[in-house]
Design a protein around this nucleic acid. Structure first.
Lengths: 253, 253
DNA sequence: AAGTGGTCTAGACCACCGG
DNA sequence: CGGTGGTCTAGACCACTTC
């Protein structure tokens, strides 16, 4: 008879809802527009608010929606492409780097970091905090761990300010010759401090990019960068060994 | 006067629960061990089951837990590192490729794909389905779009089998010289077909890796690969260095 | 103060897996 | 079959933003 549905695979309501909403977003809404509130939407679709929220959560995960407490739910713009490793052989802080130094303190890193850096378990390393914004929006927060041996000529760090201290460490890093770097991307959830920096709630999905920099055949720095997963698409440009820097929008400097 | 701070910033219960559970996982459980069921756990912590589930969901998102309907919740092993772009200048299907061809059909791709390939809106392209397994576990499903112009010498595709047809197309691809490739990584949720392939429920979080291959200064192929976000850490290695396993979790036993 | 999304509850039923 | 996680409900209150 009615082959409409339920034949053999009862699709969950929230899944069907998501499909309907996706189509509505594609056809009837434009970027930035605010949706009806959750209670109204739930009533309109004849489901409990929790069920509607399950659908909205997925759409937010996919970057289609943006929800803000006290404000409402808006249609999100397409994810922005954020370049990673544009320059294959560049240290953090090199010219062209789009990160913004915030702070720098000596700290004993957690065990996993110390292992990755091959430093002693109680050895302090320069811990640089940086943030990255695109179009005025925060997209990433980073913790950069730099062993003291990587920046030996940094004895008298009389610091005018936290940011200046960070810049000094990064500047010192450029003196080393970068041999290679390894990166990894994985899914995570924002810690409380990162969440604040990224203007999201704790637990928000993030893409964690871990990069280990090598010099003198030893790890010379470790970067742990957390990107907003809802708004970012991480892009990699691999030139197959050939230099293809034919950038039409090259900026003179 | 004593307005200095809000003494009580009520941390959400599920957030606190997550912290407690994380510590318990680190100290009292070993990989593969099954946790008490959700109803018991909720009772033990004095919260509703939905609240407990919110914590479990985050832990699963972070790759700490694995939940299977009808079975239970188990402690997940550390995420496996899955290499991307190991060989900077290699086509899909090149020697050393770890993908397994499944099928190949001529299809008219969706608009976004046609645009990326610079093919006509109604032009059919070879659509190759591949899967990738590590240690016997499925980790990724891929759709590979290859315009006919990229594999011109494929007139008589008398196909012994679907997989053989796919291999034939990939073999033909090797004749082109790969100039470069662009990749992007973003968060998504598994479509129904991908979910089945990845042995997950629809909507499961996945890392979508989109790669565009260039030859003769034109797009020659487009790959859309969806990786299980819960079990995979995507790794990028510069210049054939050996990757080193970085264990994000400390285990005591 | 009003309205929004975020959290939480205490139930219920369903789909799936194993013995 | 019993036990598991997955879905769903109809409420309630809270935190936040805006007016």
């Amino acid at each position: 008879m009615g082959t409409t549905q339920l034949e053999s695979v009862p699709e969950p309501k929230y899944w069907h809802l998501k499909t309907v909403l996706t189509e509505a977003l594609d056809s009837e809404f434009s970027v930035g527009e605010i949706l009806p509130n959750e209670r109204d939407l739930a009533a309109r679709f004849g489901v409990a608010r929790a069920t509607l929220r399950q659908a909205l959560e997925q759409l937010e995960l996919e970057g289609r929606l943006q929800r803000r407490r006290g404000v409402g739910t808006t249609v999100a713009p397409p994810r922005m492409g954020v370049a990673l490793g544009t320059d294959q052989s560049a240290w953090p802080g090199a010219p062209g780097d789009t990160w913004n130094p915030v702070d720098c303190t000596p700290e004993v890193p957690r065990a996993a970091v110390a292992t990755a850096l091959e430093t002693g378990p109680d050895e302090t390393v320069h811990t640089v905090r940086r943030s990255r914004t695109v179009h005025g929006q925060p997209v990433a927060a980073e913790l950069l761990y730099i062993p003291r041996v990587s920046v030996p000529d940094l004895s008298g760090i009389d610091a005018p300010s936290a940011a200046a201290r960070a810049r000094a460490v990064l500047r010192e890093l450029q003196h080393l010759e970068l041999e290679r770097k390894e990166s990894a991307v994985e899914l995570g959830s924002a810690r409380a401090d990162d969440a604040k920096e990224l203007d999201r709630l704790p637990g928000a999905p993030v893409l964690v990019v871990t990069t280990r920099f090598y010099a003198r055949r030893r790890p010379a720095a470790l970067s742990v960068a957390t990107y907003r997963a809802d708004t970012c698409r991480l892009t990699f440009v691999d030139s197959g060994g050939v230099q293809i820097h034919h950038d039409p929008h090259r900026r003179a400097s």
